[in-house]
């Protein structure tokens, strides 16, 4: 479980970076952030059933002028590999991927997901930052959004329990 204080910090940093639409699929560690998204009036929240749909929604939203992000667990990153490859990467769509790091060091479940998350991001050619320091949240988010827009590619922020 995360905290509302940390989740609020993430949400404010996303707004400051210009993110104005977010697709989401829940994870227990993202509960507070998703709760805040449901209440928020500024960011358009689009819950989806499967993460690959979310990549599609973010793509359409970007083409219409939004600055989109998707919030999901790393299992969802695996689910979205084809959409990331043949839509987001092939068309050059700057989607911010906010990925909860299940199976991170010290996690007692999903160790295979943890093992494969960073290699999969590298394999896809997706630049990423693993967020471990709450004091750097604002900077990590701002730099990721800048990189996504400049490269016109998806960029990932891997969220650990330390920042949630």
């Amino acid at each position: 479980m995360g905290t509302y204080e940390n989740s609020r910090r993430i949400l404010e940093a996303l707004k400051e970076a210009g993110v104005d639409l977010m697709a989401s699929v829940p994870d227990i560690n993202l509960k507070e952030l998703i709760d805040l998204l449901y209440q928020d009036k500024e960011i358009v929240h689009v819950p989806v059933g499967r993460e690959e749909e979310g990549i599609g929604v973010c793509t359409g939203a970007y083409l219409a002028g939004k600055r989109p992000a998707i919030l999901m667990q790393n299992a969802g990153l695996m689910n979205s590999c084809n959409a990331l490859t043949t839509t987001a990467l092939q068309f050059g769509i700057p989607v911010l991927l906010l990925v909860y790091y299940a199976g991170d060091m010290g996690d007692n479940a999903f160790h295979m997901l943890g093992l494969l998350t960073e290699p999969v991001l590298s394999g896809l050619g997706i630049k990423y930052t693993v967020m471990r320091d709450p004091s750097r949240v604002k900077r990590d988010i701002a730099t990721a959004v800048t990189s996504a827009e400049a490269s016109k590619r998806p960029v990932a922020l891997v969220l650990t329990r330390a920042v949630l």
């Binding site: 599609g56 929604v57 793509t59 939203a61 002028g65 989109p68 839509t87």
Partner: peptide, 19 residues
């Protein structure tokens, strides 16, 4: 055009929500 089989409806949904 859409290259990902099945994704056209999701891309259309994102466009429709944003516009």
């Amino acid at each position: 055009q859409v290259k990902t089989l099945g994704l056209c409806s999701s891309i259309g949904l994102g466009l429709a929500i944003a516009l």
